[in-house]
Amino acid sequence: TIDDAFRAIERAIQAENEGRYREALKHFLDGGEMIVTAAEKEASQKVRNLLLHKGKEVLEWAEHLAEWILE
């Protein structure tokens, strides 16, 4: 659900702030994927587009974090 997705993102932010970057990455990926999944089930085109945009933002952040971890 969207609530689960945002809880995962909150955990990711907390982990990132505490320097637990790999854990943060996992939570960002989980949250982003949950948002995209919820968007695919959404009946309203406007809400679907907003959710897809937010999911994409979260997944892009996860990608940047992963690249930073690997440096």
Score class of each variant (00 low, 15 high):
Lys54Pro: 01
Leu59Gln: 06
Asp3Asn: 11
Glu40Ile: 15
Ile2Thr: 04
Gly31Ser: 04
Ser44Cys: 13
Glu42Leu: 11
Ala8Thr: 12
Phe28Arg: 00
Glu33Thr: 14
Ala38Glu: 04
Ala38Arg: 04
Gly31Asp: 02
Ala39Val: 10
Glu40Val: 14
Ala15Gln: 01
His53Ala: 15
Lys26Thr: 06
Leu25Cys: 08
Arg48Gln: 04
Phe28Met: 05
Lys46Ser: 11
His64Tyr: 08
Asn49Arg: 09
Leu51Ser: 00
Asn17Thr: 10
Lys26Cys: 14
Arg11Gly: 03
Leu25Ala: 03
Arg22Asp: 08
Ala5Glu: 03
Lys56Ser: 05
Ala38Phe: 11
Arg20Lys: 07
Glu16Asn: 11
Ile13Asn: 02
Leu25Ile: 13
Thr1Gly: 08
Gln45Arg: 09
Asn17Gln: 13
Leu59Phe: 12
Thr1Asp: 08
Arg11Glu: 05
Lys56Gln: 07
Val47Met: 14
Trp61Arg: 07
His27Glu: 07
Lys54Met: 15
Glu16Lys: 13
Ala66Ile: 09
Gln14Trp: 05
Glu18Arg: 09
Ile9Thr: 00
Ile13Asp: 00
Asp4Tyr: 07
Lys41Ala: 09
Leu59Asp: 01
Leu25Phe: 06
Asp4Asn: 10
Asn17Ser: 13
His64Gly: 05
Glu10Pro: 00
Glu10Cys: 14
His64Ser: 08
Ala62Ile: 08
Glu40Asn: 13
Ala12Asn: 01
Glu67Asn: 13
Glu33Asn: 14
Ala15Met: 09
Ile13Ala: 07
Ala39Gly: 03
Trp61Thr: 03
Gln45His: 08
Glu16Ile: 15
His27Ser: 06
Thr37Arg: 15
Ala12Met: 05
Leu52Glu: 03
Arg20Pro: 01
Leu70Lys: 12
Glu57Cys: 14
Ala12Phe: 04
Lys54Gln: 05
Leu29Ser: 03
Ala5Asp: 02
Gly19Leu: 03
Glu57His: 11
Ser44Ile: 07
Trp61Met: 05
Leu25Tyr: 09
Tyr21Gly: 01
Glu40Gln: 13
Thr1Asn: 09
Gly19Val: 01
Lys54Asn: 02
Asp4Gln: 09
Trp68Tyr: 09
Ala66Arg: 12
Thr1Val: 09
Ile9Lys: 00
Ala12Arg: 01
Asn17Asp: 04
Met34Asp: 02
His53Ile: 14
His64Ala: 09
Asn49Ala: 05
Lys26Gln: 11
Gly32Glu: 03
His53Asp: 09
Phe28Glu: 00
Gly19Ser: 07
Glu67Phe: 10
Phe28Tyr: 14
Lys41Ile: 07
Arg20Tyr: 05
Lys54Val: 15
Leu51Lys: 00
Ala15Ile: 03
Gln14Pro: 00
Val36Tyr: 09
Glu57Tyr: 08
Lys46Arg: 10
His27Met: 13
Ile35Arg: 00
Leu29Thr: 06
Leu51Gln: 00
Leu51Glu: 01
Leu50Glu: 07
Asn49Glu: 13
Trp61Gly: 00
Ala66Cys: 15
Glu23Phe: 02
Glu63Met: 14
Arg22Thr: 11
Arg20Leu: 06
Glu10Ile: 15
Glu57Gln: 14
Leu50Lys: 08
His27Pro: 01
Ile9Val: 06
Lys26Gly: 05
Ala5Cys: 10
Asp4Ser: 07
Gly55Cys: 11
Arg22Val: 11
Glu33Ala: 14
Val36Ala: 08
His27Trp: 15
Gly55Ile: 10
Met34Trp: 09
Gly31Ile: 14
Arg48Thr: 01
Asp3Phe: 14
Ile69Thr: 02
Asp30Gly: 05
Leu52Ser: 03
Arg7His: 07
Ile13Tyr: 05
His27Tyr: 14
Leu65Thr: 00
Asp3Ser: 12
Glu67Arg: 14
His27Lys: 04
Arg48Pro: 00
Glu18Met: 09
Trp61Leu: 05
